Amino acid sequence: MNDRPQSGASARTHDAADAIGGILDAPPRFGAEVLRGGTRLTQRWSHGEFHAALPAMETHVVMTYYGAAQDAGWRQEGRHLRARTRPGTVTIIPEGQDGQWDVEGPIEVSHVYLTNERLQAAADTFAKGRPVELVGRICADDAVAARILEVLGHEAASGDASSSLFAEQALDLLCAQLIRAHSAGAAAPSPQARKGLADWQVKRVTNYMRDFLDQEIRLDDLAALVDLSRFHFVTAFRQATGQTPHEWLTALRIAQSKRLLADRSTPITTIALAVGYQTPSSFASSFRKVTGSTPSAFRAAA
């Protein structure tokens, strides 16, 4: 999965609240106050599944999730980005980026509609005034940003007289986190300066593999999860784990298939599909290569 989609900006941008409200069955629930630079906050609210095109928007949209996880996807210019809407993750749609969105089930969210004016004002403090270009993310792990978004959602709903002042301060912290963790040039150390992947990056790739074990997982998708080129990702992953991404994925698939084989009522063909193999023969070949046994023989011996 690529969690940095390339620009798909059209010549015309749209009001973000109208664009997002137009594709949801329950539109965003905004707080009463408009913050500096025209930035707006939403309360926590729930909406149903949706499958719709979202046009390029005039502001950055940053969101976090609550409650049960759901599969989500963002398709843009031939790329298909997939993830799960878990608490502690954030999605970032930079201004001017469009795409086709799919969310497979009801979710609870809160949003910040962040103007570039406000983000750049924060950059004057936190990034020494350099221009900031946010990187598109879908359900990226960031407990810090997610917690700040949760606080902002609470303030949007409170209506307290001091909420605006508190929200302005919290929004400054969110901008700082976006700049240091989700802006071009700051999203990841250069591959030349890093030997292998960090533990959190291996965990992100592994979690993604597990989430989509029954589907085709492309190397480009995995590389984009940690903002590396395909070439540098393969090298860094081997340095970090001692295995290629394909070997790592195969091990996860075979480990899961062993657990499923314990239920003798489940057909082996069903198990093959559940762990990402399209035919029983390809599953058996991979299983034998890893375990030295066929799935049927493994089940019989268990």
Score class of each variant (00 low, 15 high):
V109W: 06
D25W: 08
Q201V: 02
R288E: 09
N207T: 10
L165N: 13
S285E: 07
S286I: 02
R204Q: 07
R44F: 08
A16V: 08
D160H: 15
K289Q: 12
R253Y: 04
K128W: 10
G159R: 01
K128P: 02
D124I: 06
Q243R: 08
K203R: 11
A53G: 14
V61S: 05
K195R: 14
R218P: 01
L24G: 08
T115Q: 11
V62C: 01
R230V: 15
H154D: 13
E168S: 15
W101V: 09
P94Y: 00
T13S: 12
R4M: 07
R29D: 10
A300F: 13
G78M: 05
R210L: 08
D15R: 06
E77L: 07
L261Q: 09
R259G: 15
E150M: 11
A262F: 02
T279L: 02
L252N: 00
L152A: 05
V144N: 12
L174R: 04
Y66R: 08
V234T: 11
R259W: 07
D3N: 10
F298P: 00
Q215L: 13
R44E: 14
L178G: 04
E77Y: 03
A240L: 07
I268S: 00
D220A: 11
A251M: 08
Q243Y: 07
L222H: 02
Q6W: 15
T42Y: 04
A274R: 14
K203P: 02
Q43T: 06
A272T: 03
A184M: 14
L171Q: 01
E77G: 10
A255I: 00
D102I: 11
A300R: 15
G99C: 09
V103T: 09
F237W: 11
L35R: 03
R130E: 02
R86Q: 13
Y65A: 04
A193H: 11
R29E: 12
Y277C: 01
F50Y: 13
L225H: 03
Y277E: 03
I254H: 00
A68Q: 13
H232Q: 07
